[in-house]
């Protein structure tokens, strides 16, 4: 891993972007990384576009500004692709990971993106099939893990179980774990 990796999540209030960013950071911490996870600080309103961020590093992190030049962008809500300026500041060799039934090449041409890598996974469909409702954050975690290789999928599954044990019903926890695994297997990149 390079010394500092910055990730920006785009979602809507209530879709679990902040929770996903935290789970990812906790899994990275468990694997020995230095971490930060934080929301874009604003009033949180259900359905409003929001951003969340992760910083991962091999060295202690003292930087406390917001993220402007992410290495990775994760888009949880497909309706934000055209409205949220999702490629802003994204590095030339950056990764764009999108919840969409489309192929990466279609997204690439829609966004007129010449460089970097684009990944897509139909997290909405996975979420509806596995959880029976629209909670696309956990499948996007699976896609992020596969696309970046920054942490192991096992550690992410462990963190999800740890975080929700006693708070969610066992079948819902299992559903989230399955959603991560399915997205991990199904994400396509180019």
């Amino acid at each position: 891993m390079q010394d500092l990796v910055e990730i920006r999540w785009h979602g809507r209030g209530g879709q679990g972007a902040v929770t996903a960013a935290k789970i990812f950071a906790e899994a990275a911490l468990a694997e020995g990384k230095y971490i930060q996870a934080f929301p874009e600080y604003g009033p949180e309103r259900m359905g409003a576009p929001i951003k969340a961020f992760d910083r991962l590093s091999n060295k202690p992190l003292s930087l406390h500004s917001q993220v402007y030049y992410p290495n990775v962008v994760v888009v949880i809500d497909p309706t934000l692709i055209q409205t949220a300026n999702i490629t802003e500041g994204l590095a030339d060799d950056g990764l764009l990971i999108i919840n969409s039934p489309k192929n990466p090449s279609e997204i690439r041409s829609e966004l007129n993106l010449k460089s970097g890598k684009v990944y897509t996974v139909d997290a909405t469909k996975i979420s509806l099939e596995v959880l029976g409702r629209f909670m696309p954050n956990t499948p996007m975690l699976g896609a992020l893990v596969k696309a970046t290789g920054l942490v192991s999928v096992e550690k992410v599954l462990e963190e999800i179980r740890g975080k929700f044990a006693g708070k969610l019903k066992e079948e819902l926890i299992q559903g989230n774990l399955n959603a991560v695994k399915r997205a991990f297997d199904e994400v396509k990149g180019e």
Binding site: K22, L29, Q36, P39
Partner: peptide
């Protein structure tokens, strides 16, 4: 927010 609402180790 920068510290109060951000997660760090």
């Amino acid at each position: 927010f920068i510290i109060s609402h951000a997660m760090e180790q």
